[in-house]
Design a protein around this nucleic acid. Sequence first.
DNA 1: GCGACAG
DNA 2: ATCTTGTCGC
Length: 230
Amino acid sequence: MIISDLHPWNLAPRDAAALQRQLAAQVVVKDHLPPEVRQVAGVDVSYKKHGKMFFAAVSVLSFPDLEPLSRATAQGLSEFPYIPGLLSFRELPIVLEAFRRLPQAPDVILVDGQGIAHPRRLGLASHLGLWLGVPTIGCAKSRLCGEHPAPGKDKGDAVPLRDGEDTLGTVLTTRTGTRPLYVSPGHLIDQRRAVEITLACCRRYRQPEPTRSAHLLSNELRRAAADLPS
DNA sequence: GCGACAG
DNA sequence: ATCTTGTCGC
């Protein structure tokens, strides 16, 4: 896995925001997925209530059958606090460590967070995509910015997420009867493909299989590192 | 000043 | 995100 253009993570909030504006200009919102998508990865991070211990997990599934192919994990500390809009400075370092442990880069990555549906157009998914040079999709469970009408109740129903003249993403119902997901391009992919891939990864749960799998794995890590007695 | 606010 | 048990509903 090749990483390029490293930059510090211990920045003051103001500097982090300035860096985001700089990086956002490099985000590519065009379809650069390979002709045949065969590997889809999901990534998620878990940690303790007031602790600094983080647990990242990456789960790679085959596409479109969604069978387990490989996985990688990493754990470490983080000093950066949670500040809406600056999530990547808190979680990306440990996520990148997990990706370094993957034998091979997947064709596309689903992230539990926003892509360009961000105040400065650089959510966690976009930031990760830039670092890895791999197509990414933001699949957030709630809204960070932008406005939209309520989408339909059935799986596949969708409405655009907008901010003035900009279309930031798609508010997509991924499972009938559940709250929608906020899908937006991360990097190297366009709106249409982002929704297409995400929907193809949804089976019987609101969360796409890749991120759902990573979520379960990161939770196992946290629990294993936590409770010793029984 | 007030409300909003990914994970 | 995390702290937490059972419980109402499809």
